[in-house]
Each structure stands twice: as structure tokens, then as C-alpha cells.
């Protein structure tokens, strides 16, 4: 960990000003990912702006009848919040499938969106990694890529986004609220994270001088028919090999609306709108689910030790849809 200076921002303006004035400054709140990466010598900010005293820690209803999750609310507070648990159980379940109780007590919603990949090579400075050191090469392509992506990859990077929460947020079509020195803007969740392309070092479409203030959930929470299915190498406290977030609106046995997002398979929570369209208007049965699953993995590519994920993802989608439709 390199030396850095520290300041505590008193309000949003101060936080934005501090970050805008220093291109090697980073915000810190929960610290669960940043401090880890600084210890691993992967990230080297020279100034940290503590934003934990900014407020931004409320969960409240939006005018449209949705829910606004302050960016500094912890993952645990969010998951156990009565409104979230009741109206957005998909989100609550996804959060509680991630990390550990201790980490969820520290990690914030904003930080969860910005957590970085768990790629072994990204973490190990003895090996080349385009995400850590652009242009150095991708060690995972021909290496041990059990935990790596099968969708939306590039020759420069096959890392995955490790969040569980974000998979649910993608399915719920949340909106990310950000503030910069010129004002505010809203980023649809689908546009928040990026695919690696030839710039794998940039994870998200968030400018360095912007701060996430909230994540807004639209009114529809799919609280009747939902499933967060997480498949991992042990029963708990492990990142997803594949995860699936499903929200359905049913009319009898017919699917009226479908949301489907996958984790552990791509550089961002993965949605396939064509696959979702294949579900809508069709009976909730194995044939329908398989068609959607096949459509999703049709574009998948394995790299050796992660090739099993293609079939696993297919089966996981079918299983999650089946459970959600019940």
C-alpha cells in the first residue's frame, strides 16, 4: 500500500471538488474493495476522500413510487430494509448471497457497483493484466480461467464483474444517480458497466470526478415471481461461477413480463433482451425456459477451464426461471 493523504468531506460539493482537483484521488466509504486492492498494490490513489459523512444514507420512496437507495446505505441495511425485503426480494436475496455479514455491514451500495473483478491475474502484480496495466497482456486467456467470462469478452480481457447485487439491479432496471461539478445525471443500469473491448481498465461509465448518490428502483419489483440463483464452489462466502436473477410477471401460466440477468459470466451483469422477449407471452414451461437459455448461451465462448460455464449458465437459467415461475 502506497502512502496517501486523507480528508473527510463534509458535504457533496466538497467531495466533488476534492475529487475534481486531484486525478489520483479516490472516494472511500466501506473500503472493502479499495483497501484490499491497495494492499495488493493494484490500486494506488495518493489521496482518499472519506465520503461516509455525506448523508446519502436514506432509503426512501421516489415520486414514481419506486425506491431510492442512498449510495452510502450499507448492503446489509439495504437487504434487511422492510421496503426492500417486501417489494424487491430479488434484490435482498442477491445482496445476501454475496460476501459475508461483516463485509455487507461495511460495503455500501455505491461501492458495490464499483467493485472490481476478482480475476487472479488482476490481483497478482507478478503477471500481465490489461485491466491493471493497459497493454501488458491478458494472462487469463491462456491461463486458469475458471472464474472468467464467457460472454462479451474481448481479446484484451475476459474478466467478470463480481457483484451479486448488481445482477439483481440489472434485472430490476435500476437507475444510477450521479453528481458531478456541473450537476446531476441519471445512468440506466444497463449503461453503467462496460464490456472490456480494448479499454478493460475502465469498468464503468462513470467519470473519475463523479460520485454516485443513489440507486433508484422502478416501481415494479417482481415480488411475486422472482429468483436469485447463485452457483459457486462452496456453500457460502464465494464468488459466483454463474448467477441468475429472474423477475417475472405471470398471468396464469403465461409469462407477461420477464427480466433475466446473469452474473459471473461477463464483464458486466449480462442481459439478453432477445431471450427475455422469447419468454414473454409464452407458457412457463421447460420448453420456453430452454429456448431463452439457449438464446443466451448461443453467443458464449469458453476459454478452457471456464468452458463448463456455458452449459452451467444454460441450466442455471432454466432452473431459475422454473423456480421464479412457481
Amino acid at each position: 500500500m502506497n502512502p496517501f493523504t486523507y480528508s473527510r468531506a463534509g458535504d457533496l460539493d466538497e467531495a466533488v471538488r476534492e475529487i475534481s482537483d486531484n486525478d489520483r484521488a479516490k472516494f472511500i466509504a466501506g473500503g472493502t474493495n479499495l483497501v484490499d486492492l491497495m494492499k495488493a498494490n493494484v490500486m494506488h490513489p495518493t489521496h482518499l476522500v472519506d465520503i461516509t459523512r455525506l448523508g446519502l444514507s436514506a432509503i426512501e420512496e421516489t415520486e414514481e413510487g419506486g425506491l431510492r437507495l442512498g449510495s452510502l446505505v450499507t448492503n446489509a441495511e439495504t437487504a434487511y430494509h422492510p421496503q426492500v425485503a417486501e417489494r424487491y426480494p430479488l434484490l435482498a436475496n442477491a445482496i445476501l448471497a454475496g460476501a459475508s455479514p461483516q463485509l455487507r455491514n461495511m460495503a455500501t451500495n455505491g461501492g458495490n457497483l464499483l467493485q472490481r473483478t476478482r480475476c487472479y491475474y488482476f490481483y497478482d502484480t507478478a503477471t500481465p493484466c490489461n485491466k491493471r496495466e493497459p497493454g501488458s497482456g491478458c494472462s487469463a486467456l491462456n491461463g486458469h480461467n475458471r472464474i472468467h467470462a464467457i460472454l462479451g469478452t474481448s481479446e484484451h480481457c475476459i474478466a467478470t464483474h463480481p457483484s451479486d447485487m448488481c445482477v439483481a439491479l440489472a434485472a430490476l432496471e435500476a437507475v444510477v444517480r450521479v453528481t458531478n461539478r456541473y450537476g446531476e445525471r441519471a445512468i440506466p443500469f444497463a449503461d453503467f458497466h462496460r464490456l472490456p473491448g480494448d479499454t478493460p481498465h475502465i469498468d464503468a461509465n462513470l467519470e473519475p470526478d463523479e460520485i454516485i448518490t443513489a440507486v433508484e428502483l422502478p416501481p415494479r419489483g417482481f415480488s411475486q415471481h422472482f429468483k436469485y440463483l447463485k452457483i459457486r464452489d462452496r456453500a457460502s462466502y464465494a464468488f459466483a461461477l454463474v448467477s441468475v436473477a429472474v423477475g417475472l410477471e405471470m398471468e396464469g401460466d403465461t409469462i407477461r413480463e420477464a427480466r433475466l440477468a446473469l452474473g459471473g459470466v461477463a464483464h458486466k451483469p449480462w442481459r439478453n433482451l432477445e431471450a427475455e422477449a422469447l419468454l414473454v407471452g409464452n407458457p412457463a414451461n421447460r420448453e420456453t425456459f430452454k429456448r431463452a437459455a439457449d438464446r443466451i448461451v448461443a453467443d458464449a465462448r469458453g476459454y478452457g477451464s471456464n468452458s463448463f460455464k456455458i452449459e452451467l449458465a444454460r441450466r442455471a437459467v432454466v432452473r431459475a426461471l422454473n423456480e421464479a415461475a412457481k
Partner: peptide, 19 residues
């Protein structure tokens, strides 16, 4: 490294003391 901060359990290894 689990300790309680304001009664909540956290990992002390990922918390900065100044915070």
C-alpha cells in the same frame, strides 16, 4: 479480524483507523 463497530460486526483489516 472481526470486531464490533457501533455494535455491528466488520472486518477490521479493511477499515482505515482514521475513518
Amino acid at each position: 479480524c472481526t470486531v464490533l463497530v457501533d455494535g455491528k460486526r466488520i472486518n477490521a483489516c479493511l477499515a482505515l483507523a482514521v475513518m
